[in-house]
Nucleic acid binder design. Structure first.
Lengths: 188, 188
DNA sequence: TAAGTTATTCAACACGATGTTTATTAATAG
DNA sequence: CTATTAATAAACATCGTGTTGAATAACTTA
């Protein structure tokens, strides 16, 4: 009942080949033909698993989000500001470990939809930690949430392409401080 | 020496037609054929002006950035916090006036490259206003700059797709406050 | 290990979009 | 008005697409 090893290999090599291609050019410039040539997989085989290159791309994104979630689930956090800080450290560590994929998904060849999606996923966790302790107006809160989440991803993206990367701890301290200050500005 | 009216029309109608198409689907799903049919322009004519649909798209983005810049150049700002606030109000007013195009360029069908680009352009202005008054560490400053700029664009994007939009003044007040607080957190 | 299942490959196909070229027509600038 | 030049229409080779049927190879399970 376990999944066929051939299928595993096919999906794996196609996945890796697409990521390699996306390091060079946007998904819109990638053809199914060249992807299959790079992966050394028959085109007909590709079509038994995916409808087109975008389909595969979406699945890579979905797997990434699932992986991030399960990764973050494995940590029990302390209460208060320390817990929030720890969470952000973990996020930076994860990005560091998966830098190639992150560069593809968050870089210039990534798509906006995913950006928004990952922002909501990660942002909710951070915001949840913070929300345990503070209260703000509803509409304002959503905007602050958006601001903090997109701003943080912006920092991650910059950090991701930096020559001499600062440590995850330093970055987390920076982000946590920015988030807290921005949020505190609106406590009634 | 003035540009031929036929050329003006061709470029204009192609531009408008592409924007209409981009309200429905991403640029990768748009074909030159359908674009030309929508614009009622011969395909051969399209190829005398652009290499492909991406080329036209890039030009639309470039024109947008040029337009934003010249728009913002037309305002002389007061000194200090009032000046920064005024600038942000102007940005929100601009977005409101050009909401259709902004929805295309900043929405889910926009591309990340443009997002980064516009972030730098607008962010530099805001940061310049702020930089007149404060001093911070170099590397930290760049991260804060990135954070504030991407966060602000995140807010603009959310606002752009809202049912009952808050006024530009209210939004500007929110953004200015968030920017100032985040920045002040790092003054030595 | 053997048997039956199933994924992959290969070749071929019709189809549509691409990018280019030619001659022709129509609009424009001066 | 005239010379210029842009847009059109039709045709073309080329390429990627998505699907098919038969042959082959690898896998799972008993």
């Amino acid at each position: 009942m376990a999944r066929d090893r051939r299928v595993k290999y096919t999906k794996m090599i196609l996945r890796e080949s697409l990521i390699k291609l996306l390091l060079e050019k946007p998904i819109a410039r990638v053809t199914v033909k060249e992807l299959c040539e790079k992966a050394d997989i028959n085109r007909a085989t590709f079509y038994t698993h995916y409808t087109d290159q975008f389909d595969l791309f979406k699945q890579i994104e979905a797997e990434f989000i699932a992986d991030v979630n399960s990764y973050l689930d494995n940590f029990t956090l302390e209460q208060g500001e320390t817990g929030l800080f720890q969470l952000i450290v973990k996020i930076f560590e994860y990005v560091e470990k998966n830098s190639e994929l992150c560069r593809v998904l968050l870089g210039r060849n990534g798509d906006m939809d995913f950006q928004t999606h990952i922002m909501q996923i990660v942002g909710k966790r951070v915001f949840f930690e913070w929300g345990k302790r503070k209260k703000v107006d509803e509409i304002i809160a959503e905007y602050i949430y958006t601001y903090v989440a997109t701003g943080s991803i912006g920092i991650i993206r910059k950090w991701l392409f930096e020559e001499n990367q600062e440590s995850p701890e330093k970055m987390a301290a920076l982000v946590a401080r920015l988030a807290n200050k921005g949020i505190e500005a609106f406590i009634s």
